[in-house]
């Protein structure tokens, strides 16, 4: 009874022009987005995917062992940390073990990649604007060319990949370069449990090595059914 008080989420996702929808809720995959493909799809009214899924390697490399011996800097693999998820929070953590794995596979062409609340660029750099609407942006990226752009940086704390021992605060993270500025579009805090998600709706400008620019904004991080890390992304490329 009282069905009318509630909403039934639609199965289909309504995407506007200049918008992408990526279900990036998997802990085990990166989703690579190519804005050229996205533009082509939009122009053709096509439904083909603008992104490519690539699994995060978690199997230990042959001939190598894992263990708690060292917090290896910038070596590809899974870094297991203990986080004080029920106490001081994520900033309080201790390294526990490292498992070397294969390099993260990537498609031949891509601009950004998303994994839950994490974002990487293809050798790009990002700047956070104060704009909260794509339509309010200046006409081109020239307005931002004198701003500070932050490149991707090594990270072995945030790309949560192995959640099998999460109840004990142990999380296996992929060691990989991510963009710290772009990744601030969705902040995840623990405690509380379940995690606290905070959306930053500012527009970000991304500069790529070919000197092209994109403007991107995270509009929503939930699916219609409420699944977290299902990303609705507004974009302008080239910008």
């Amino acid at each position: 009874m009282f069905d009318e008080l509630y909403d039934t989420p639609t199965e289909s996702i309504d995407i506007r022009d200049g918008q992408l929808y990526v279900d990036a809720s998997s802990w085990l995959d990166w989703y690579y987005i190519d804005f050229n493909t996205a533009n082509r799809n939009a122009a053709e009214g096509g439904t083909s995917s603008a992104f490519v899924k690539q699994a995060i390697p978690t199997e230990m490399l042959d001939g190598q062992g894992s263990g708690p011996a060292m917090e290896t800097p910038e070596e590809t693999g899974i870094y297991t940390y203990w986080y004080d998820v029920f106490g001081a929070g994520l900033s309080h953590h201790e390294f526990r073990s490292f498992t070397p794995t294969a390099e993260q596979p990537e498609p031949s062409s891509w601009h950004i990649a998303v994994h839950r609340n994490n974002v990487r660029t293809n050798n790009g750099a990002a700047h956070e604007t104060t704009y909260t609407s794509m339509s309010d942006l200046p006409e081109s990226s020239k307005a931002f060319q004198d701003k500070t752009f932050t490149p991707d940086a090594w990270n072995q704390l945030d790309v949560w990949t192995i959640q099998a021992q999460m109840l004990q605060g142990l999380i296996g993270n992929q060691g990989i370069k991510v963009n710290p500025v772009l990744s601030s579009w969705l902040k995840v805090d623990l405690p509380p449990v379940p995690p606290l998600f905070t959306l930053n709706n500012h527009v970000f400008i991304v500069r790529f090595p070919d000197d092209t620019y994109a403007a991107i904004q995270l509009e929503n991080y939930q699916s219609p059914a409420g699944t977290k890390c299902c990303l609705t992304i507004n974009y302008k490329y080239p910008y």
């Binding site: 009282f2 008080l5 509630y6 909403d7 039934t8 989420p9 959306l199 509009e219 929503n220 991080y221 939930q222 219609p224 059914a225 409420g226």
Partner: peptide, 14 residues
């Protein structure tokens, strides 16, 4: 009843 209110999409899902 229990429901989650998705503020961004304004959906109250039971």
């Amino acid at each position: 009843d229990k429901s989650d209110y998705h503020k961004i999409s304004r959906l109250d899902v039971r």
